[in-house]
Amino acid sequence: MRRLGADGVTVAFDGLTALSEVNLAVAPGRITGLIGPNGAGKTTLVNVLTGFQAPTGGAVTLDGTALTGLKPHEIRRKGIARTFQGGRLFRDLPVIDNLEVTGVGLGQSRRAAIAEAEAMLDWVGIAALADRIAGTLPYTDERRVAIGRALMGRPGYILLDEPAAGMSAAEAADLAALVRRIALEMGCGVLLIEHNVGLVLELCDHIVVLDSGAVIETGDPAAIRASEKVRHAYMGTAAEAQMPEGVA
């Protein structure tokens, strides 16, 4: 079965357990949500899935094969892409080169990488930004470039780490449309990590809730919205405000 999975992943930094026996699966063409309060271990899990953090227990598997010991660039070449909180663009390079770098990293010639980068910018809807220096972009455009960069080479999976942070409602809606297209048109499996719970409830087929490094709930948006445990975990963190009732 095609899936990217965390199977019983545990991460312990001397004494402190950041993740304990976390199971999670991302399927092609589907959007999986990962939510949880601050410090729940969401980013740590993304780091484990993309090879930036070695798990102290359990394994990351791609279509049933363990990815143990692979470096981040090797994992990327297997078709598991990610974005970062805060963009992490190559600031001094033009937008087009930001995408081209990934093409080159995946083994394309510069010519082929530029061609794909142009097509990708077009697909994401930011072709007009191609020659802008990445460091001069506004926040929202930065996110789109980061997503375009991660989509180079048509990865099987993409992990989006808080792509909507700091966005207005309208901008978040645009982003939601883009994320849907990534799953539907590219058949890419999406893992969406977000603080904006409303966005996650709206977009995701399946949601995993982390708290203090452990999975406390999984299910479809309706189940998550109804869950007492989730409500409890978010108590005191303005969860009520973040979980609008009207979201379909």
Binding site: T50, F52, K71, P72, H73, R76, R77, A81, R82, F84, R88, L89, F90, V101, T102, V104, G105, L106, G107, R149, A150, M152, G153
Partner: peptide, 9 residues
């Protein structure tokens, strides 16, 4: 960091 996430060794 972003470079290795872009497949660069």
């Amino acid at each position: 960091t972003a470079a290795s996430a872009s497949g660069i060794d």
